[in-house]
Design a protein around this nucleic acid. Sequence first.
DNA 1: GTAGGGTTAG
Length: 622
Amino acid sequence: MNSIALNSLARLMCFPPGKFVRVNSFLCPPSTRKLSLPIFPGNEHAIRSLCSSPSLDIPTLTELVSNQHYSELKARLRASRSNPAAVLRQMLDSGSDPELTLRYFKWSRDELKLSHTLELTFGLSHSLASAKKYSKMRSFLDEFVRVSDGNTVSSIFHSISNCGGGFCNGSIIVDMLVWAYAKNGKTQLGFEAFKRAGDYGYKLSIISCNPLMSNLAKDGAVGDLEFVYKEMIRRRIKINVVSFNTVISGLCQARKLNKACDVVDDMKACGVSPNVVTYNALIDGHCKSGGLSRMYKADAILKEMVDSKICPNEITYNILIDGYCKDENVAAANKVFEEMQRQGLKPTLVTYNSLINGLCNSGEISKAVSLQDQMSSSGLKPNIITYNVLIHGFGKNDMFKEAREMLDVIEKEGLVPNVITFNILVDACCNSGKIEEAFLIHASMASKGVLPDVSTYNSLITGLCREGKLDKAEKLFEEMKDNSLKPNVVTYNILIGSLCKKRESRKARRLLDRMVKIGLSPNHVTFDTLMDGYCLEGNLRAALKVRELMQKEGLRANIATFNVLIKGFCKQGKMEDANSLLNEMLQRGVVPNRTTYDIIREEMVEKGFVPDIDGHMYNVSG
DNA sequence: GTAGGGTTAG
C-alpha cells in the first residue's frame, strides 16, 4: 500500500474538517490535500481495517461508474456515509481515469443535485488536460460556462491556478474557457478572462481569441477589439488570416476605414496575404462609408484585388450590387450583375434581393417583380427578405392591395412573416394616412405569433402625430411600457418633433430632459429637431443654447445642424448671422449641400434677389 | 486542443 492508496483511504472516510483520525498514533487531518501516511511495520493493520469498513473504495467506485450502476452507487454512498463531494476529490487525487471522474461529476451534480466547487471543477479540468482528453474538456467547460452564473472571472482564475496541475494545462483550460465564453455569447466575461490571462501569464491561442474578436466586432465594441488585437501581438500569440480579417471587418463596420487599412499593412508586414474575405470587408466598408466618392473607391479596391490575382466571388459582387443600389444607381448595379454572370458566377438569393430592393426603391416595381420571376425560374426560392422588399416597394408606390396580398403568398410558400414584414405594412399605412388600417394590422400581429416591437409603435406614433393626434400618440407611448417595450431615442425624437411643430418647444425640451433621466442618449436628430422647434418660434437664443448642450454631449454640429440654424436665422431676416454660420461650417470642413443653398436662395428670392445661372445673387429691386 | 473572417429587408 503506497502513499496514494493511503491518501485515498483517508479521503474515503470523509471526515468532517477539523476532526482527526487516529491511525496507529499518527494524527492525520483528513482534509489535507497532500496527506500521506508513512508506511512502517504496524501500520498495515490500521490500513486493512480502513479497507474493510463499509466505505467505498476507489476500484469499486470506478467500476460502478464505469458500468453506470448508479442506483448501487447511490446505495453504497449512503451506506458508507461518504460525502459525495469528498469522493470526487478522492477520485481526482487517486489518479482515477478522468473520464470516469467526469462521469461521476456529472452524475452527482444532476442526480444528487450537488453543486461542485470551482476547485473541483478545475481540478477535474486539469485532470482531463493531463490525460489529453481535449474534446471532453471542451464540452465540459462549455457546459460550465452555460450554467455557472454567479462565479466571477477572478475566482475562476484563482481556482485554475491553485488547484494543482501544470501551468501548460492551465493555459489550455483558460483558452477553452475564453472560447466557451465567446461561443455562448458571454463576450464581456470572455474579454475579462482574456485580460486576466495576460496577468497570470497564461498563453492563449487563436482558437479562443478569434471567436472573442468576432463577438466584439459584432457588438460594435471596436475599442475592445483593437485592444485584443494589439495584446495578441504583444503576447506573441500567433495570428492568422482570420484574425486579421476579423479586425479589419470590425473596423470597417465601425466606419474606421483608415485604421482598417493600417491593419492590412500590418498583415502584409507579417507575411500574411490579404484574401478574398479581406477585400470583401474593405469593399463593403467603402460602400457603406457614406462618402461622396464611396463607390469610386470601392471600385478602386476591386481593381487592386484583381491586380493582386485575388478572384472576386459571389459575395464581392453582391456587396457591389447592393452598394450601387443604395447609391441609387441601379444601372451600375445591373452592369455588375451582368459582369458577375460573364465571370461564370451564378447570382445568389442575396444578389436578387439586393437588386429587387434597388429596383423597388427607384420606383421600378414592374422590373422588380419580373426579376423575382426570373429568380424563381432559375431555381432560387424567394425568402422572407425578398417578400419584405417587395411589400415595401408596393407600399411606397401606393399598391396596398398588392402589399396585403403578399402576406397570403408568403404563407402559401410555407414561409412565416416576421416582425419586419408587419412593420413595413404598418409603416406604409401610416405614411399614407391609413391610420385605422395600420392599427388593424398592429392588432392582428399577436394572432400571427408576432409581437409588435418598438419600431411598430414608432410607426404608429408617427402616423398619429402627423394627423395632429398628439394626445393619442402620447397614450400609445404610455401603452408601450405596459407591453414591456422601452421607448427608444427614435420614439422620443418623434414626440419631440411633433411638439415642436405645435410650437410647444418648451414641452419638447422637458421630454429631452426626461429621456436623459431614464438613461437614453439623445442623438443628432434629437438636438436638431429641438433647435428647429425653437427657430420656428423665433427663439434663436434658445436654439443656440441647445447647440451648446449638444456639444457638451460630445456631438459636433453637422450639415443638418447648420442647415437648421441657417434656416432659422434666414427666416428672422438675420442674413449676416446666417452668413457667418455658413462661414463657420466651411471652416469646420462641413460641406454645404443642396438644402443649404436652397434655404439661402429662397430667402434671397423673397428679398427680391434673383439668382443667375451660376447661383450668384443679384439685387434687382434696388 | 481545431476554432474563426466577408453580402440582403423596416
